[in-house]
């Protein structure tokens, strides 16, 4: 194997890793604020991606405006999901399993609605910096991928600051960890939970507009992204805000290095086996803390 090939596999692994990580970040954020594993996180990305496509193609909006609007639409979707669907279930005494099933149902619904109204075609979304590439030695990376990585890192840091430094962020955490205690200190627990979903929708849609140029946007992309994002978030440890990104990068790198060193057919076997081993050896996740097993 040549050095160029290894470098290429690292660049590819990083790109894919940040894709998984961005979805995982939203998942982890919602988990931190509500203790719900959101099986429709990837569908926030679908909402963001398809909104950007429609704004660009049907209304001819400029790229930056379409992206911004798509991200805001994702936040709106998060707000609606919490208000109309998650909150009634909580009132009726939802269990951990029923939230999983509910969000899975919402994922099916979003995907079905996109299929019905937009169709089954894949849509290409232009990347930041077009299709341009940066050549590094004998390897190449898309300009857009570099932006994706930079934005992914920025989102990770902002989320960290948000949850540790701002009143709203701390209140969200408090509401999730001890709802009654938080309520006695004057925190509006219901509002905090809604805001958590708004945040999750925002991050998810951002992931969608960033992933769209790499994978093309289509109605079935949601569940696929959720599965990889879930793996990234759990692997990194749900309790640490940086976990999802670290987990995503690990998964992405293992996959792409498995391709160039072993076999492309067996890459998932290798990646998933390593994933299981890491979980058994490090029961707190890559960046987890003690006493918060499995999140």
């Amino acid at each position: 194997m040549t050095g160029g090939l290894l470098l290429q596999s690292i660049l590819t692994g990083l790109t894919n890793g940040f894709v998984y990580g961005l979805v995982g970040l939203g998942l982890a954020a919602i988990f931190r604020g509500t203790r719900i594993v959101n099986a429709m996180q990837g569908d926030f990305s679908l909402i963001g991606g398809i909104a950007a496509v429609l704004l660009l193609e049907k209304l001819q909006w400029p790229l930056a405006a379409a992206m911004a609007a798509a991200v805001l639409l994702g936040a709106l979707a998060g707000w609606l999901v919490e208000l109309i669907l998650v909150r009634p279930l909580r009132k009726r005494g939802g269990t951990e399993d029923s939230y999983l099933l509910l969000t899975l149902g919402i994922a099916f619904a979003v995907s079905a609605l996109v299929l019905y109204f937009v169709g089954r075609d894949s849509h290409a979304l232009p990347g930041i910096g077009g299709e341009g590439i940066i050549v590094v030695g004998d390897a190449a990376i898309r300009v857009h991928s570099v932006w994706l990585i930079a934005i992914g890192l920025a989102v990770m840091l902002l989320l960290r600051l948000f949850f540790t430094r701002t009143t709203v962020g701390l209140s969200m955490m408090a509401a999730a960890i001890d709802a009654e205690g938080a309520a006695t200190t004057g925190i509006d627990v219901a509002l905090m939970r809604t805001l958590t979903f708004v945040l999750g929708g925002l991050v998810g849609a951002l992931a969608g507009v960033l992933v769209g140029p790499l994978v093309t946007v289509h109605y079935e992309m949601g569940l696929l992204l959720t599965l990889k994002g879930f793996a990234a978030a759990i692997l990194g440890g749900l309790s640490n805000p940086m976990g999802a990104i670290v987990g995503g990068i690990t998964l992405g790198l293992v996959e792409s290095i498995a391709i160039v060193t072993v076999s492309s057919g067996y890459k998932d076997v290798i990646a998933m086996t390593i994933l299981i081993i890491i979980m058994i050896v490090m029961p707190q996740g890559l960046l987890g803390r003690k006493l918060r097993r499995g999140g």
């Binding site: 596999s9 660049l11 894709v19 790499l214 079935e220 391709i259």
Partner: peptide, 14 residues
């Protein structure tokens, strides 16, 4: 449904 197959493509190129 692969999202990015640059690593495979690079292996073909090599």
């Amino acid at each position: 449904a692969a999202t990015d197959v640059s690593a495979q493509a690079a292996k073909v190129r090599a």
